[in-house]
Simulated scan of single mutants.
Amino acid sequence: MQPDIEIYVLSCPTDTIVSWLSQTFTLLEQSQPTPLCTKVTLEFNGHTIPVTILEQASGKRFTSIWFDSSHTPWETDILCAKDAYSSLNCEVRCNYQGWEEEGDQDPDQWWKINSHGEGPFVWN
Rank of each mutant, 00 (worst) to 15 (best):
P3R: 05
I7L: 05
L10S: 05
P13Q: 02
T14E: 01
T14N: 03
D15Y: 06
S19W: 09
S19H: 11
S22A: 02
Q23A: 12
Q23T: 11
Q23R: 15
F25T: 06
L28D: 01
E29C: 07
E29P: 06
Q30N: 08
S31Q: 05
S31M: 06
Q32Y: 07
P33M: 02
T38L: 03
K39H: 08
T41H: 09
E43D: 08
E43L: 07
G46I: 05
I49R: 05
I49Q: 06
I49F: 04
P50K: 02
L54I: 13
E55G: 08
E55V: 06
Q56M: 09
A57V: 04
A57F: 01
A57P: 04
G59K: 03
K60Y: 15
R61E: 15
R61A: 12
S64Q: 10
S64N: 11
I65Q: 06
W66S: 12
W66G: 12
D68W: 09
S70V: 10
S70W: 10
H71T: 07
T72E: 02
W74T: 09
E75T: 15
C80Y: 09
K82N: 12
D83P: 07
Y85C: 00
S86K: 13
S86Y: 11
C90M: 05
C90W: 01
V92S: 04
R93P: 07
C94S: 06
N95D: 15
N95Y: 13
W99D: 14
E100M: 15
E101V: 10
E102I: 12
G103K: 05
D104S: 13
D106C: 08
I113A: 01
G117Y: 03
F121L: 06
V122Y: 11
N124H: 12
